[in-house]
């Protein structure tokens, strides 16, 4: 009970901070929106043998992008907390460290979920206004109900990556480096922006190692009905990935403090 209260407290703090930092909400929406419109409108080539237009194709990828940016932020916030000293305040409290990581993770996942949902609703709105955009995306309540838990799962996994990296690093600068050298490539290699079937063999191998690929593919299957990877497979990979990432993050966080 005490530990649940602690998880809730840490989560609550993340929520208040998120609510206070309105610029952050906008900033992390900007990139995905630019991708959707500028990139999506620029390249109009149909995908999957002409069955889906490009904007529909990248829509799930862009949602994953929004989830990634927001979730990685929880890694940054761990480093911030350490630098601002608030981390010590949490660590010296009579609660287990696991509760603190879980609270932080859930906080990060919740913010990611909100951002992802905003993009989802945006796609829905545009589709209604301009039918040539996102014509292949099936958006209705039942899709949303499947997309929602998928987004939670994906966010938690990426939050796990963020917290693990933050536990291994000392500075925000180091985190920026990792962001550019690991996280961005993870996104670009995930097949979010192009179908992985067309890739040369050697890149495709990397693509299959990248967990983000499975995140994009599972969402894509639910949203547009096509995917290069079987849904059951991609869902299972995401499930295992998220579960192990949270375990790793908890372990590393605990060891660090």
């Amino acid at each position: 009970m005490r530990e649940l209260e602690a998880v809730y407290t840490v989560w609550l703090r993340e929520m208040i901070r998120y609510y206070r930092a309105k610029e952050r909400i906008l900033a992390s929406l900007a990139m995905p929106i630019f991708w959707l419109f500028i990139f999506g409108s620029g390249i109009r080539a149909p995908v999957f043998g002409g069955q889906v237009d490009y904007t529909s194709f990248i829509a799930p990828g862009v949602i994953v992008m929004a989830l990634m940016f927001t979730s990685m932020h929880s890694g940054i916030s761990v480093i911030w907390d350490r630098e601002l000293g608030f981390m010590k305040e949490m660590l010296v409290a009579p609660v287990s460290r696991i509760s603190i990581v879980i609270g932080k993770s859930l906080g990060g996942a919740t913010t990611a979920l909100i951002q992802g949902t905003i993009i989802f609703l945006l796609i829905f709105g545009i589709q209604n206004l301009y039918s040539e955009y996102f014509s292949g995306v099936r958006i209705n309540i039942s899709t949303f109900l499947i997309v929602l838990p998928l987004m939670v799962l994906i966010s938690l996994g990426i939050v796990g990556i963020g917290i693990s990296i933050a536990s291994l690093l000392d500075t925000l600068e180091g985190f920026g480096l990792i962001m550019n050298f690991i996280v961005m490539p993870m996104f670009f290699l995930s097949g979010a922006l192009f179908p992985i079937n067309n890739l040369p063999e050697w890149i495709r191998v990397v693509t299959y190692i990248d967990p983000i690929t499975y995140a994009v593919e599972s969402l894509r299957f639910v949203m547009i009905g096509f995917s290069s990877i079987n849904f059951v497979l991609s869902f299972s990979v995401i499930f295992v990935f998220t579960f192990s990432m949270i375990l790793i993050a908890t372990y590393l966080f605990n060891r660090r403090s």
Binding site: R2, E5, A6, Y8, T9, L12, R13, I16, R17, R20, A21, L84, G85, F86, K88, E89, M90, A93, P94, V95
Partner: peptide, 24 residues
């Protein structure tokens, strides 16, 4: 603590509120 350890984006009351929750 020797160095600051407040959450500076929160209000004074919120900081105290979080602390009292953490300490049950």
């Amino acid at each position: 603590f020797q160095d600051a350890s407040l959450d500076d984006r929160l209000t004074a009351r919120e900081n105290l509120e979080l602390h009292s929750r953490l300490y049950g």
